[in-house]
Every structure is written in structure tokens, then in C-alpha cells.
């Protein structure tokens, strides 16, 4: 029997019980809010601690030499990470150049087609987004390092490109799907071919979302070191040739950070700060761009 159907006397009893239990229920509410606020503070504490440590320990390592000089052997003060800056730029640039066009085309495919084949591709892309990045390093090693006979920056780019692919594909798909059907139909009504409608009308309308996805993909790749361990492998010198071993910032942080020399650790913190600044700028930039464009679209 529900409350509404109950006889009047019972209903009054229920109302009274509800009113009487209100203080107790309110107190539980306060306890839970307190716990949730505590949880939120606990969730923020690692972020604050990581950033505070990285800034506090990294700033002392920064100098003009730090960004313009080559590394020096352990124990000797000075030196810099310019080769890792160059290496990261080249490795990530090649990775982006491979992943972005391919990812946008594949995302366009996912947005345009609803066949079983498209569902399979979408599923595989989702699975790819969740696999450990180090296994991509193993793939790049087998495919490029073993066959070419030496470690290379390009093998690292290849692994990072695969890592970026699902992000670019799925954000492209989502932003193209967000463009109104009317745009497709208007384009066709004007006599445009599908490719013209897609590239002249739909993609420009979805560009904000696509750029956001690309930036997010790049920011994910820039910080990755696991796939580079046995592909780009690192280097002490300038290397502008992607066919050769290359230094990269995340690799430097790992290789210097696990050394016992305070000087090496200082350089590791300085590199970590530079990497965090780059990654956060890419990340925040992409989010702000996304917000501005969605507001603009409204």
C-alpha cells in the first residue's frame, strides 16, 4: 500500500515520522558533504604537490645554458638539454604529421558511415585507446628497429603516432557528427559533390573540435616516454636525422632522475618543469579553444 492510498490516520503518522527523522537525515547529509569535500581536497593535493615540487626544484635548474647547451658527463656542473628539446620537437612533429591527416580521414570515415565495418573500426579505435603505451614501443621495435638494424627517432615517432590516433579519430568523429545534417543537405542542394561538401563546408564547421582533438593528442604524445625507451633510445648529442637515435625530454627525465648525482637530478627536475609547462599549455590551450568555439557556435 502506497502512502497516498493509506488511510488518513496512517498518513499523518508517516508525515510525523518523516518530520521527526528530518534532523537525523539532515545530519547524515552534512556528514556526507563533509566527506565529499574532504575527498575533493584529497584529490587536489597530489596535483598541487606535483606542481609545487616541479616548479620549486625545476626553477633553480633553469638558465640560458640549460636551454642552449648539450648535456655534460655526470659530476660536472652546467650543461643543458637543448638536444632533448630538438629531439622532442622532431619526434613529436613527425608523429603529429603522420597521425593527424590519417586520424582525421579515419574520423571522417567513422562520422560518415554507419556500416558494421565502421562499428568494427570504432571498436578497435576504442580498444587502442586503452592499451599500455609500452606495447606500442615493442611493436615499433619489431617493425622498424629490428628491420632497419638500429634505433631511430622515427621508430619513436611511429609508436607515438599510433598512440595519438584514437584521440584524433574519435574527437574528429564527434565534432563532425555535431555539425548539423542541414549543412550536408545544403551542400548537396547547391550541387556540391560529397568531397566538396565535406572539405569546404562540414570540416570547416567542425574545425574547432578537430583542432582541440589534435592538440590533446599531441599533448599526450609529448609526455610519453615508455614507447621511446627502445625506439628513440636517447642521445647525448644533437641529432637532426630521424633515422638515428635521438634524445627526448621524457627520456632525459627518466634517465637522469634515476641517477644518484644531485646535478643529474637537478637537470631532471628542470626538464620535468619544461615538459609540464609545454604539456599544460597544450592542454589548457585546447580546452580554452574548445570552449570559445562552442560558445561562438551557440
Amino acid at each position: 500500500m502506497s502512502v497516498a492510498q493509506a488511510p488518513l490516520s496512517d498518513r499523518l503518522l508517516i508525515q510525523r515520522a518523516a518530520r521527526r527523522s528530518l534532523p537525523r537525515r539532515r545530519i547524515w547529509g552534512y556528514v556526507v558533504v563533509g566527506l565529499c569535500i574532504f575527498a575533493a581536497l584529497a584529490a587536489l593535493s597530489p596535483l598541487i604537490a606535483v606542481l609545487a615540487y616541479t616548479v620549486g626544484r625545476g626553477i633553480p635548474a633553469w638558465s640560458v645554458d640549460f636551454f642552449t647547451q648539450l648535456p655534460v658527463p655526470p659530476g660536472i656542473p652546467g650543461g643543458g638539454i637543448s638536444n632533448a628539446l630538438v629531439g622532442s620537437l622532431i619526434i613529436d612533429g613527425i608523429a603529429a604529421a603522420m597521425a593527424i591527416p590519417f586520424g582525421i580521414a579515419a574520423g571522417l570515415f567513422l562520422a560518415e558511415q554507419t556500416s558494421r565495418f565502421a562499428n568494427a573500426v570504432r571498436f578497435v579505435a576504442d580498444v587502442l585507446a586503452g592499451i599500455p603505451s609500452i606495447t606500442l614501443g615493442l611493436f615499433a621495435y619489431a617493425l622498424l628497429v629490428v628491420t632497419l638494424g638500429h634505433f631511430s627517432g622515427f621508430a619513436g615517432s611511429f609508436a607515438l603516432a599510433i598512440l595519438m590516433l584514437p584521440v584524433v579519430m574519435r574527437t574528429t568523429e564527434a565534432s563532425i557528427r555535431a555539425v548539423s545534417r542541414d549543412v550536408w543537405e545544403a551542400g548537396a542542394a547547391l550541387g556540391g559533390r560529397r568531397v566538396q561538401v565535406a572539405f569546404r563546408m562540414v570540416i570547416p564547421a567542425a574545425l574547432g573540435g578537430i583542432v582541440t582533438g589534435c592538440l590533446l593528442g599531441i599533448s599526450r604524445a609529448v609526455g610519453e616516454s615508455a614507447p621511446l625507451l627502445f625506439t628513440a633510445i636517447g642521445s647525448q648529442f644533437y641529432s637532426f636525422n630521424p633515422g638515428q637515435p635521438m634524445a627526448a625530454m621524457p627520456l632525459d627525465i627518466y634517465q637522469l632522475g634515476i641517477q644518484a648525482y644531485p646535478q643529474a637530478q637537478l637537470t631532471a627536475w628542470g626538464t620535468a618543469l619544461a615538459l609540464v609547462v609545454i604539456v599544460l599549455l597544450l592542454n589548457i590551450g585546447s580546452r580554452m579553444l574548445a570552449r570559445r568555439l562552442t560558445r561562438h557556435a551557440r
Partner: peptide, 9 residues
Amino acid sequence: AVPSVVYGL
């Protein structure tokens, strides 16, 4: 967004 290797350090 903070890279894994920075957490490690």
C-alpha cells in the same frame, strides 16, 4: 595531463 614520467620523478 601531467606526464607519467613526472609522477615517477
